[in-house]
Design a binder for these strands. Structure first.
Lengths: 208, 208
DNA sequence: AAAGTAAATGAACACTGTTTAGTAAAAGCA
DNA sequence: TGCTTTTACTAAACAGTGTTCATTTACTTT
């Protein structure tokens, strides 16, 4: 049936259309401040139409998940393979931080917001994307261990430790909890990077 | 003027009354899900009245700041002084994590939300409370350094590193970003604590 | 008691996410 | 072709939100 096929295509096109408009607005003025009516206006449809393609606002958010993780995974994969594992780990950390600051709204969506997590019972399937990104870290930690770093720990535990630290650093900075102790914007940034270096040195000095 | 004095007192009482109701509701069902009308109902006044005492909803939130930090500072101060610095650091970390899980709404307010930061240009004065809590960590790190731990780093940098890690761990857990990799709730909790222990061991093994 | 002041109200404003009854166009079938 | 059914969409409504403001109520001062 050619008609059914076309309808299927059109439905998919509409979904993409909505998601593109939603993404543009979300990244432009934030999730909270973007209303369904804003999105409807952007695509020149009535608000109700959006609910024919997506369950609710959270599902809209959730559908940007994949794209967001692809972006991060791309960044984290793009590391010089010639580098030693421990140097690559440093670069990966910097890339992660860079991504977080260049895509604050996406980062929020991926690692901070509760809404998209509620949207689906995303136990295994859907967080494949997050898993893929985490695997990049895990793989690198594994290589580091073969070089004698973090050798006594389980890969997963060491990886989570690293992730937690960088995530904590990034969120404290972006949520303005470092500015308090600092005189200027640059000051809080250098302080953040100094702390990042302390963390790295701490890993390096523990070589077995 | 006795009358003016009484009026002043009554105004203050009203403020406290509103804040107490707000606190109860915020902690009970969350900041977002608590409306001004909810608070007004609780104190049996009209919604408009609240705006005679507070600029907006954010200011209401901001006024819980002091109390929240006092709570954390109290917890973090309550550590056996007989303990060695490095053991005390471990306990402090556990206390921090405990506080975060027992007071999720307060933790959010203190370290995650953007709203209260916008409410006031709280550069110095208001974050004194946050500073006081951070100082407890800094003091402990200083003592650890005298024992040879983290010896080569600046106190501030090492302290921020520790804070970032624990904060990251806590937020990843509370925002359900660990459940993805885990089979059960307990699993994600033990995993969190395993990562915490890795971090500690990493500090301990770096003794000079 | 009358005038003036301060406090509290409740309706209104401009929004929000979401649901639903009704409509117009397209598709399937005779 | 005409007729029915299906699909896509809309406009309006619902129940809420934070916030403002003219109006009323209560109290204080003259």
């Amino acid at each position: 049936m050619g008609v059914a096929d076309r309808k299927e295509r059109e439905k998919e096109e509409m979904k993409v259309k909505i998601l593109e408009a939603a993404k543009k607005l979300f990244l432009g003025k934030g999730f909270e401040k973007t209303s369904i009516r804003n999105i409807a206006d952007a695509i020149e449809y009535s608000p109700g139409t959006i609910y024919l393609y997506f369950k609710d606002k959270n599902e809209l958010l959730f559908n940007l998940h994949v794209e967001a993780f692809n972006g991060l995974t791309r960044e984290l994969s793009n590391i010089d393979p010639e580098l030693s594992p421990i140097d690559a780990l440093e670069v990966m950390g910097e890339q992660y931080i860079k991504f977080a600051f260049e895509n604050p709204e996406l980062y929020e969506l991926m690692f901070v917001m509760e809404a998209p997590m509620e949207s689906l019972e995303c136990k295994e399937e859907v967080w494949d994307d997050g898993m893929k990104a985490f695997d990049l870290l895990r793989f690198l930690v594994d290589r580091c261990q073969k070089d004698g770093y973090l050798a006594t720990y389980e890969v997963d535990d060491a990886s989570l430790m690293i992730w937690s630290f960088v995530h904590g650093l990034v969120t404290l900075k972006s949520r303005k909890r470092l500015d308090m102790f600092c005189d200027s914007e640059e000051d809080s940034l250098t302080r953040m990077m100094r702390s990042f270096n302390v963390f790295l040195k701490q890993i390096k000095c523990g070589k077995s």
